[in-house]
């Protein structure tokens, strides 16, 4: 894991993008979006988290094994969420 040394310039640019996205997401919360607040907020969150992961956490230059750990954790999180939530979303269709 001795990837290339990230120049400070990259860090500053990513930081600027993160702050801008934070301001956007807070601004959006003042709009009358009703139930879509969560969707928009989480989507912006995904972008921000990807920036932190790729640049601050050096995923961009990390080994395949590290990527495997990241992708596995997201895959398993998907299993947990999709299969659990699908139960709740289909309960009303047929009562028994």
């Amino acid at each position: 894991m001795s990837g290339p040394i990230t120049p400070t310039r990259t860090y500053y640019r990513v930081f600027a993008a993160l702050i801008a996205l934070t301001l956007v997401t807070v601004y959006v919360s003042f709009l009358e979006l009703g139930p879509w607040h969560t969707t928009v907020g989480v989507l912006i969150g995904v972008v921000k988290a990807s920036l932190v992961g790729l640049f601050f956490m050096h995923l961009l230059h990390s080994s395949k094994a590290s990527w495997l750990a990241v992708l596995a954790s997201l895959f398993w999180l998907g299993i947990l969420m999709v299969l659990t939530i699908s139960d709740y979303l289909t309960r009303h269709i047929l009562e028994y």
Binding site: T25, S29, H37, T38, G41
Partner: peptide, 11 residues
Amino acid sequence: FLLPLLYLTGT
């Protein structure tokens, strides 16, 4: 993720 889920979910 906590910011949008907790704080920004309401108007």
